[in-house]
């Protein structure tokens, strides 16, 4: 099951992606978290930044400058080897892949065509893949990540958050992403009115609303102290609610299997 978590920057999608990874990885190790948003930092939210050695972007750049010296070596095997040994980060209960910087100048057609193949083969072996993805869905439009089964759009109470959610839905239609479902999570919602607004928005725009999450001061505090969000107290409402969402996702997976 591949789940893309997306939404306008600042809505808290990275926090949700990190918590989902955290919860699912307590049940199975067959989970890959993918940081596909250059503007956010999933490894920070998971508290594993120190383990990250290279990003996929780093390896792609290295490939661009080393390829002339490869002789008869197989370039696909070269890239695959680098990704498996240096990019995929083995954390305690899950694997993590950081897509990293965007392409530089020059032609990446060939590098990307190999990467696509390597990622396709890699991804089919995980039961769960959680992708923290920017609102432009760039990796999907470029097909570096070929598909996701579900997408979770995170919005806060802001008008911009909602309009971005709407745009993501339109974009996924234009890109023919064929998600099995598009979910919505209302995040950092502090009053009833906003909740009603989000509920109505979901209905009108045919999102399945997973939940509406409160604003949690602990998160801001953890952030301030530079600590990972997965340290959120288990007793907090936020923690319980996201755990509940993770369980819902896992139920969906069981149904599929």
């Amino acid at each position: 099951m591949i789940v893309a978590v997306t939404g306008k920057g600042g809505t808290g999608k990275t926090i949700i992606a990190a918590l989902l990874t955290h919860f699912i990885s307590q049940k199975t190790n067959s989970i890959l978290a993918v940081d596909a948003d250059p503007d956010s930092n999933l490894p920070d939210a998971l508290g594993v930044t120190k383990l990250i050695r290279k990003t996929l972007g780093d390896i792609r750049e290295l490939f661009q400058v080393s390829r002339d010296e490869m002789g008869t070596m197989n370039k696909e095997q070269w890239l695959e080897g680098k990704i498996y040994s240096e990019v995929i980060c083995e954390c305690d209960n899950y694997d993590l892949l950081v897509m990293g910087r965007p392409e530089g100048e020059g032609c990446y057609c060939y590098a990307n065509s190999i990467l696509r193949g390597v990622l396709r083969k890699l991804m089919r072996h995980y039961d769960y893949i959680i992708i923290d993805c920017e609102a432009g869905l760039e990796h999907f439009s470029r097909k570096t990540i070929e598909k996701a089964d579900y997408t979770i759009v995170v919005t806060d109470m802001s008008k911009k958050g909602l309009s971005t959610a709407k745009r993501i839905k339109e974009l996924s239609g234009e890109l023919n992403l064929n998600f099995k479902d598009i979910f919505l999570i209302g995040n950092k919602v502090t009053n009833k009115e906003a909740e009603t607004l989000i509920r109505r928005f979901a209905e009108e725009n045919k999102f399945k609303l997973l939940d509406v999450l409160p604003y949690d001061e602990n998160i801001a505090e953890l952030d301030l102290r530079g600590e990972p969000v997965i340290k959120l107290p288990e007793s907090s409402e936020y923690y319980k609610k996201v755990k509940n969402i993770a369980e819902k996702l896992m139920e969906l997976q069981v149904k599929v299997m």
Binding site: N74, Q77, G81, S85
Partner: peptide
Amino acid sequence: ERRNHDFQNYIEGYMHLNQRYDIW
């Protein structure tokens, strides 16, 4: 020689990476 990588990866529970003197 480069097919060794393909074939060995067909084997369940066996992971083959890289080539030549770099194998893992």
